Amino acid sequence: MRITIARTAGFCWGVRRTVNKVLETTADAKAPVATLGPVIHNPQVIAKFESQGVKVYERVEDVPDDTTLIIRTHGAVVPQQALAKERKLDVIDGTCPYVKFPQVMAQRLSRDGYHLIIVGDANHAEIKGVASYAEGPYTILRTGAEIPALPGVKKVAVISQTTNDSTYFKKVVGEASLRFREVRALNTICYDTGERQTEVRELCEKVEVLIVVGGKMSANTRHLAEIGAEFLPHERVHHVERSDELDVSWFHGFREIGISAGASTPDDVIDDVARAIAAFAPDGAAERRFHSPSFEPTHANR
């Protein structure tokens, strides 16, 4: 059995930056530390922080006074940030800079009179935050949906959730260009996301089974599994959070196994999954190697 691990698997630059902020804050904490929502979408990391006394609150209203509050990687809605400032809480902004970009553009484009089309999941923390920056009308368009009728709208601006599939974003932009007089499109998809998706496509050409490791609530991880299922039979693509979710039957008769992982998946969790798969090898041994994608790595994953 040969196990090929995606080189882009594991923490992206933005997640690592926010996790480090939490670690640095707790190390020097003189007051309680909390996060506004789960700081990243990974249950193991959240459990580790909670064991160190870091509490998770969904609303600023529930945060005790004199608490150091860290804003999650996905950002926060404007009213909650304003309330934290009003309460004079010590706030550390852990929002990923790649998420800051669509936030800023949502505000700027809506001020310029564009009807904003935000491509993404309306229930996702990132999109809730981005939409809260809009100062005019906006439409949130879930992946796969058609642009709704927008009577009277002549100019639109299209932005995207940072973890979206670029293929669908292009489709929305193309459709918008045929329907509206003026269209402004800004590609707000994170470079790291695009590279992971490209590598999964390439990896699926070389393996027989794909294991995607990461939180079930992680949008970018789910997208990796969805892309894998476009290239491999659905029953050969499995999304797991931990090694104990693996089933030996998934690997019967297959030699080439691929592993990818979401941007919020710790390296030790990926390693644990790889070791568990290797233990399933008939001869008790498995070769492990890293996949070398065709693209050049950017600063986001060096």
Rank of each mutant, 00 (worst) to 15 (best):
T221F: 15
E202R: 12
L224D: 10
G194N: 02
Y191E: 12
E202V: 12
V153A: 10
T188R: 00
S218N: 14
N164R: 12
E182T: 13
S218M: 14
C204Q: 03
I140R: 00
R196M: 06
V91N: 14
G120Q: 01
A122K: 00
R181F: 13
G129L: 03
R179W: 09
E146W: 01
V91T: 14
Q161P: 08
L109F: 06
T193N: 03
E126F: 02
A149C: 04
N123I: 04
N187T: 01
D192G: 08
Q161V: 09
L186C: 03
E202I: 12
A134Y: 09
R184K: 10
I211R: 06
K171V: 08
S160K: 02
R111V: 10
A125H: 01
T143A: 11
V173A: 15
A219H: 14
E205P: 10
T95E: 13
D165C: 05
V207R: 07
A157W: 08
L186F: 08
V99A: 11
P151E: 10
C204F: 01
P151F: 05
K128E: 01
Y191P: 15
N187P: 01
S132V: 06
K206R: 14
A219S: 14
I117C: 05
R201Y: 07
D112A: 15
V158E: 03
H115M: 05
K170H: 11
A176K: 01
V183M: 10
D192H: 09
H124R: 04
A145V: 07
P137W: 03
Y191S: 11
V172W: 11
L203M: 15
N164Y: 06
K154F: 05
G94H: 07
E175H: 04
F169C: 11
R179K: 15
N123Y: 02
A225S: 13
K170R: 12
N164F: 09
